[in-house]
Design a protein around this nucleic acid. Structure first.
Lengths: 302, 302
DNA sequence: GTTCCGCATGAATCGATAG
DNA sequence: ACTATCGATTCATGCGGAA
């Protein structure tokens, strides 16, 4: 793929571009990560896809995605069905079955646990604080950089030391290494910083994560109705790609995936049909370029 | 339903008893909460149900459950599909679709987040730390006591719990019964099950929960080997029933649901086909009766 | 009477080896 | 070719003995 074909936003219906072999050749993309419009939601911006038409609307898109994805690549689909008439709708689980018929392997279902989800309760349910991140692949043997997403032992980041006594803390930190425990104890009294930066914290003090992801939702982004925090695509990008790999997001929204790619030094390709969002993407990329003193060249195409 | 028909464990295949109208009349049960054997798991004790036969195996059971459940009752199904040949199996989502065809409403999917899940990582996945708790109902308007499962508010509550010694807690939880030992404190699961009873906790310090439940699995607790932790059925029992309501668990295992019912003053009905587990249930109920100085009369029937 | 620490273990999963 | 068994891997938790 030549340099004209990445760091691009295509303006318009994604299916048109995804079907164009000259723009997106077979097996040319390392990761697809996207959060498509949910059925019957966001009517104002996307016109809304009817729940009963959702699967048939999505399948031609996923067919092209399968063509475009490299054989050892991954496809992450962030989605959650909303309740309708007191019931969870079934189009997502029907979609899983249809994607399998299309030849995709359903590798995993990650649970994105949104701690600060929108509050509320209803007569037969509480607030919905998790979404599905469905992981599909073309073959069993996929690229996966598990070391890249290791987390501090004992989930410190989440607790932020608040609930842990110093003794507990030292015990977690040291394991059977008493010397380190003391070091950490000393450090504890001086500064409270994110543990990645702590002297004496090496790789062996990190654990692998699980299939439950704990990222907060972003509340500040009012211009795009799908809240997709930077951490979410970032996590999957780190897990499934390496530097300069190519990441595709056919429903870019306000460009979170593109921003994540810039920050992580990956190439992005995106589609977005709503003018307002495309403007938003430009604004966001320019802002990142400026603030990080980067000069990522990108194009908007139509 | 007369008193002979509750606080009973039926020994044998649950479908036999579930089909008996004289034992389990129509619309006679307030809540069904169960964790059936997962496909191809627990082969030693249950023989294992093949993934491809799972749905057809379960449907006759769920048909009877629908007959037995009160119209405003709930059915909670705890299950998780395991990977096979690198893919998540599909029998659970197929089961959801079939249960809907059977007339069930799929109200909600609760996510049980098990922080202490079995460790491990593999070439294409991390460890599985969540299970589905599928909520089905017969009608839109269901019984739901949302106040009963309110949870302590954030940091304040955590600090409060941490600063409270086990002894304080046991005293509060047990009232004036000094014979309650440490083991019983664990049974009651001091910090999670009954926070309402703790001195200093008033209503304004509680929030409503979400559809993500955070309970640890019980791993090396030899006092009662439970497949699901006491908190899990307890939470749903508090949420969907009131005192003296009737709770059914067609796959009792070691009797966790029965224990939860005794602690929460509900009536239980259960089935279990493995002799070893039935013995375990008896042992566990007797122990609770003794340690809590209760005298719950129950019967094992065959 | 406490607190601390060692250690076993749990509805796990994969890939290699054996029958 | 297909199934069965086994070893290596991995971590939060609670029990029980030690300090």
């Amino acid at each position: 793929m030549n340099t004209h074909n990445y760091n691009v936003i295509y303006k318009g219906d994604c299916l048109k571009y995804l079907s164009d072999i000259s723009l997106l050749p077979d097996k040319s993309v390392d990761l697809i990560v996207t959060s498509p419009p949910y059925a019957d939601k966001r009517k104002d911006s996307y016109g809304g896809v009817h729940p009963e038409k959702y699967v048939e609307w999505f399948l031609p898109i996923s067919k092209q995605l399968k063509r475009i994805l490299k054989n050892n690549g991954s496809f992450i689909l962030n989605i959650k069905e909303h309740p309708l008439n007191g019931e969870r709708q079934t189009y997502v689980i029907e979609l899983i079955l249809e994607l399998k018929k299309q030849g995709w392997l359903w590798v995993e279902e990650y649970c994105w646990y949104k701690k600060n989800s929108f509050p509320g309760k209803w007569p037969n349910r509480f607030r919905d604080s998790w979404e599905r991140c469905l992981h599909f692949a073309k073959q069993n043997d996929i690229k996966m950089y598990q070391e890249a997403v290791k987390i501090p032992i004992g989930d410190w980041a989440e607790k932020r030391f608040k609930s842990m006594s110093d003794n507990d803390f030292i015990r977690h930190a040291s394991g059977n290494n008493r010397h380190l425990g003391r070091k950490v104890a000393n450090w504890l009294n001086k500064r409270k910083v994110f543990p990645h930066n702590v002297l004496g914290f090496e790789k062996e003090h990190y654990n692998f994560p699980s299939n439950v992801l704990n990222f907060a939702t972003e509340c500040s982004n009012k211009n795009h109705s799908a809240v997709f925090p930077l951490e979410l695509p970032s996590w999957f990008i780190k897990l499934f790609t390496s530097k300069d790999d190519i990441v595709l997001d056919p429903f870019m929204g306000s460009g979170t995936t593109a921003i994540a790619c810039i920050l992580l030094e990956r190439k992005f390709i995106g589609m977005e049909m709503v003018d307002e969002y495309v403007k938003e993407i430009k604004k966001n990329i320019n802002k990142v370029n400026k603030e990080l003193d980067k000069n990522i060249v990108y194009k908007i195409k139509q």
